[in-house]
Structures are given as structure tokens and as C-alpha cells.
Design a binder for these strands. Structure first.
Length: 575
DNA sequence: ACGGATTGCCGTATCGGCCAAATGGCCGA
């Protein structure tokens, strides 16, 4: 079991306790345990076996037992009991923005609301506004939030879905009857959210493969099972579909089920013009009906005169034309990244010390990193003021001298106030090597004001990079209303970089805006925004999004060697 | 529930904005 899965159970226990109005300190303790598990330096099972869990701050005797129970049986009694104690639908309500535990308890107790549908009905019926502490405005806001929630409901972040898909791939790949196996669908295209997992297998013994599939411990229930196709729910609720095809059709099926639909249509259209027919079974000569290929995807592309197109590009957004012209981008990969330009330490909301984070970066082989803790406005994180920032800078310089093995840029993630001013003195910011400016408040300004706010930060003259520019949180809230195109253009004019925050909850910039940045020659920094040592290694999600945005190594700021990065910074500072 | 000093008990993120009610709870970062 992955740490995130264990943590999810604690998060849920905390949420239920909170809705039930239990001791808030108990609630916080559970939340703290959940967070601690998410940011453990190793796998929970490893640490439990070694007995080192006890040393983690926040994890006491009780939670140690619960964690052990979860690791051995997949769940714990307290969790099962808590779940049974409230209607199942209430938990989903907690995912609606602006709807907290107290309000959920209120609508449940006063109106008997136990689900999203009932909540919406109550709001449309005007009953919400009659409740104490609620009114017309709250009711309208709630409806808007429910609509926003519904737009993304059922989709799972790639950071949650892909590990499950890869684990299944790994397990099924061991089976003797499996000749070839791969992911298909949106998980193979590495979209930022996934509806369900698609797995494709080449085999002559579909029944044996499906037996293996449905008996995986990760499979919670089997929804349907036919001759060649099987659908299941996984433990976390994600749906997974397995298809089994003969090896001679594997490439054709892989192409077909990978999509996207628009890409497939365009490819088939191209085939038609060449007198060919492409479907999920293979490539066929239209006239003779003879099969010309289908075992590999390369054959599919070759049949229409194209080189292999990476799955991340298959959206019919020009990749076919580029492939035909021999102008496919050489997409950036994880190995191209030479440094990390956004991370936090325990000076603010990080879980590891400066020294530990740096050691982890060295272990990853980074040439350079930037330490970018929060600024004072973010009070929850104990954001740095000018004085604490200067102290941290001194620590960084000393550590860099001591180690000698890695360049440590002294930086900050400075908050952008609602009026566009920055949270720290410009003089203090000018002393730093690297300044990211980000929005963490006032997401609901009118688009015009929000745009002005971001432009002000971009034009401040002391900012090197705009952090998570859209502000979206996947599965939680959409980006704030803003003219991002205009902000990006201005950033380009002034020579700033833009961040692609690769934290799996963000993936911000999204692929489309990455491509815009690339087209305008704006360097993109692919960052992890790590708050713990292990998160420094989670670079793949940012890279996926970058690839979907057509980024090549030369478009990526932290794919540059240190000397080039420093030259870029120096030239920025003097222009 | 956890951690730590008081070893059986006590304290434990912060703070601003929003909205409904006219000061205060709730939410989110």
C-alpha cells in the first residue's frame, strides 16, 4: 500500500470526526498524522517494519497501531466504524468549495441533506437560505460551487491514478500468458486528470489474464466481465478496464484505445486518402482487404507515412502535421532536468530541514536548487519576513560553502497581495538569487482586477518567475478568473520565466499555456514545489504536462546547465 | 490524539475575508 492511500484513510477519519463535531484537537491530530504519512521519507510499510514510525512527530501509539492495521488488512476498524456512523454521501459534500464541516452538519441536521443531489435541490428550493448563518448569497455561492464540483467529479488526478495503473501493469506483466501490456487512454496520454484506467494486453489466453486481473488485491469489485473485456473498481474507487487482444492487433488496439478520439479520426482520415483502413484490429488495404500491419503502433503510423507520435501529443493539435513535416518536438524528459527551482523547508510549511532537503537534492543528482519558502502573508505556514529571510539566506550561503557539491540559490516564493504589491520589500528581494511570485489569496477578484494584480507582479522588476500562474487545484477549484494570455505575453516581453508547478494537485501552467509560453519563447521552470524530501523526486507529473505542452529541453529553464541559468539570471537582473 | 513536562495532566497554527446579523462563526490558505 502506498503512503498516499494510508494517508487518505486518516484524512477521511479526520473529515468524519469534524462533521460529527468531535474534539477539534483530535481532528487536528488525525490530520497531522495524515500529513505526516504523506511526507514520510520512506514507504510506511518499510518504516513500520523497521519500527521508525514511532519517531515521526505527530504519529503516536494509537496511530501507529492503526497504520499497522491498515498496512496488513487494507483498512482499520476505527475508520470502518466512523464511515458507518454518518451517511456516505456527506463526505462528498466536503469536497465542495466553501462547504466546511460545520455547514455540512447544519444542512444534514436541519434539512436532512445527505448527498450532493439533495444539497443542490435544497439550494434550488431556497431552503438553504432559511438556515441560521446562511442567506441568499451563501445559497447562490453554494450552487456555483456545486456546479464547479460537478464539472470535474469522477475525474482522478494523474498523480493518484497513474501509480495504480503502473502497479497493475507491473503485476499483470509477470503473468506467463501476457505477451505485451500497456496503458491506453488518457492515462497513457498523461492527461492531468483521468476518468478511468485502460489497460491493454496481448495474449492468446484472455480468460487466464482476466482471472489474474480480477484477483489482484487492488480490485474491489468486478463490474462486468466478457470474453475479452473486463471492468472493475479499484480499492480507491477508480474504474479500470482491461482489454485482451491477439498480438497481431496489439499495436492497432493500443493506438485506437489511446486516442484521443480527434487524433484517431484524423489518422484514419489520412489512411483513407491512401486507400487504407485503420481500425482497432489493424491496417488494411481498402481494395483487397489484406492486413498490412497492426502488431505495433509504429506500423500504424508508418502506414500513413508518419513517424511514431508520442502519446502525450495525440490530441489533434497539430501533431500529425508536425510529424508529416518531420518537425515533431524532441520532448523534454525527466533526465533533462538539472535542477529544482521551487521547494520549501521547515522554516515555513516544509517537513524537512534545509540540510535534509539539500541532501535529498544532491542524492537526486541536481546541479542546483533554489530554496523558496513562503513569505509572511501566508501566516498558516509561518511565512518569512525580511529578517527571517536574511537569516535563512545566511544559512544557505554557509551550507553551500560547506558542501561545495551543489549550487543553492537563495530564493523566495513571495505572495502577491490583492492589490498586486509584493509581500516583502523590493530591497530584500533584490538580494536574492531567485524570486517566484505567487497568489495564495483572493481568488475571487473580478477578472480585470486579477489580471491587473498579476501584471503588477510581473512588472515589479524584482520577480523572476510567476508561480503556479492559474491557481487551479485539481479536483478542488478551477483557476481564478484572469486574462492569463495577457499575463503570459507581458511576462514574455519582460523576460520572466513561468512556472509549471508539477505538484500533482496543481499541474499549473497547464499544457495549453505551456505551449503558448513555448511559442513566445518564454522559459518554463518545471518544479516540484516539494514540501518533503521524497517529493523532490516527484518530477514526472510536471514533465508529463510539459510534454503535453510540446516543451523541448531548450524551453525548460531548469533543463539548462547552471552556467546558462546564471547567465540568464544575470542578464535579467541587468536589463 | 499527541507530546512533553507537571509521569497522570494540559495545551495544542494563524489570521483575514465573507456573510449574516449587527459581533461572530465559518472557511481556506
Amino acid at each position: 500500500m502506498e503512503n498516499n492511500e494510508v494517508a487518505a484513510i486518516f484524512h477521511e477519519m479526520a473529515a468524519i470526526l469534524e462533521i460529527k463535531g468531535e474534539n477539534p484537537f483530535r481532528v487536528r491530530a488525525f490530520k497531522r498524522v495524515a500529513q505526516a504519512i504523506e511526507t514520510l521519507p520512506e514507504r510506511a510499510s518499510t518504516m513500520a517494519a523497521a519500527g521508525t514510525l514511532a519517531r515521526v512527530p505527530g504519529i503516536g501509539k494509537g496511530s501507529q497501531d492503526r497504520i499497522t492495521e491498515i498496512l496488513t488488512s487494507g483498512d482499520c476498524a476505527d475508520h470502518v466504524e466512523l464511515r458507518a456512523s454518518i451517511p456516505a454521501g456527506l463526505l462528498e459534500l466536503a469536497r465542495v468549495e466553501g462547504l466546511g464541516p460545520r455547514t455540512i452538519a447544519l444542512v444534514y441536521n436541519e434539512l436532512g441533506v445527505t448527498s450532493l443531489d439533495e444539497l443542490e435541490a435544497a439550494a434550488r428550493g431556497g431552503q438553504i437560505a432559511t438556515l441560521p448563518r446562511m442567506g441568499e448569497k451563501s445559497q447562490a455561492k453554494l450552487l456555483t460551487a456545486v456546479e464547479a464540483y460537478r464539472r470535474q467529479a469522477g475525474r482522478v488526478r494523474i498523480g493518484d491514478a497513474l501509480p495504480q495503473g503502473l502497479a497493475l501493469l507491473e503485476a499483470l506483466g509477470q503473468h506467463a500468458a501476457v505477451q505485451r501490456i500497456d496503458l491506453a487512454g488518457s492515462s497513457r496520454r498523461r492527461r492531468d486528470t483521468i476518468g478511468d484506467l485502460d489497460l491493454l494486453v496481448a495474449s492468446d489466453d484472455a480468460a487466464a489474464v482476466m482471472d489474474c486481473f480480477v484477483s489482484r488485491p487492488a480490485v474491489a469489485d468486478v463490474m462486468l466481465r466478457g470474453e475479452t473485456r473486463c471492468s472493475v473498481h479499484l480499492r480507491g474507487g477508480l474504474q479500470a478496464d482491461l482489454r485482451v487482444v491477439p498480438a497481431a492487433s496489439f499495436g492497432a488496439a493500443l493506438h485506437y484505445f489511446t486516442g484521443s478520439k480527434m487524433h484517431n479520426i484524423a489518422i484514419r482520415d489520412r489512411a483513407k486518402r491512401k486507400g487504407l483502413r485503420i481500425n482497432e484490429y489493424g491496417v488494411f488495404d481498402e481494395a483487397s482487404g489484406q492486413q498490412l500491419g497492426g502488431a505495433t503502433e509504429e506500423q500504424i503510423f508508418a502506414a500513413v507515412g508518419l513517424p511514431f507520435i508520442p502519446p502525450e501529443l495525440r490530441e489533434n493539435q497539430g501533431e500529425i502535421e508536425a510529424a508529416a513535416a518531420g518537425e515533431l518536438p524532441r520532448l523534454v524528459s525527466e533526465q533533462d532536468l538539472r535542477g529544482e527551482l521551487h521547494l520549501h523547508t521547515d522554516a515555513t510549511d516544509g517537513k524537512a530541514t534545509l540540510r535534509e532537503m539539500v541532501a535529498a537534492a544532491v542524492a537526486l543528482g541536481h546541479e542546483y536548487i533554489a530554496v523558496t519558502d513562503h513569505s509572511r502573508a501566508l501566516t498558516v505556514t509561518q511565512g518569512l519576513d525580511e529578517r527571517r529571510l536574511r537569516e535563512q539566506v545566511a544559512m544557505i550561503r554557509a551550507l553551500e560553502d560547506e558542501l561545495g557539491s551543489i549550487r543553492i540559490l537563495a530564493g523566495i516564493e513571495v505572495d502577491i497581495h490583492a492589490d498586486g504589491t509584493l509581500d516583502l520589500d523590493h530591497d530584500a528581494l533584490r538580494e536574492l538569487d531567485w524570486v517566484i511570485a505567487s497568489v495564495h489569496s483572493h481568488f475571487n477578484l473580478p477578472a480585470q482586477e486579477q489580471t491587473r494584480r498579476l501584471l503588477a507582479a510581473v512588472e515589479s522588476g524584482v520577480v523572476d518567475c510567476l508561480g503556479h500562474p492559474s491557481g487551479r487545484i485539481l479536483g478542488h477549484r478551477e483557476g481564478y478568473p484572469v486574462d492569463l494570455d495577457r499575463v503570459i505575453r507581458r511576462a514574455g516581453e519582460l523576460g520572466l520565466a513561468l512556472e509549471l508547478n508539477g505538484y500533482p494537485d496543481r499541474l499549473d501552467l497547464d499544457a495549453q499555456h505551456c505551449r503558448q509560453a513555448r511559442d513566445q519563447g518564454i522559459p518554463v521552470a518545471i518544479n516540484t514545489d516539494a514540501h518533503a524530501t521524497r517529493q523532490l523526486a516527484q518530477r514526472q507529473y510536471g514533465v508529463y504536462t510539459a510534454r503535453r505542452g510540446w516543451l523541448e529541453p531548450r524551453d525548460v529553464l531548469n533543463a539548462r546547465p547552471l552556467a546558462e541559468l546564471q547567465a540568464w539570471l544575470a542578464q535579467r537582473r541587468h536589463s
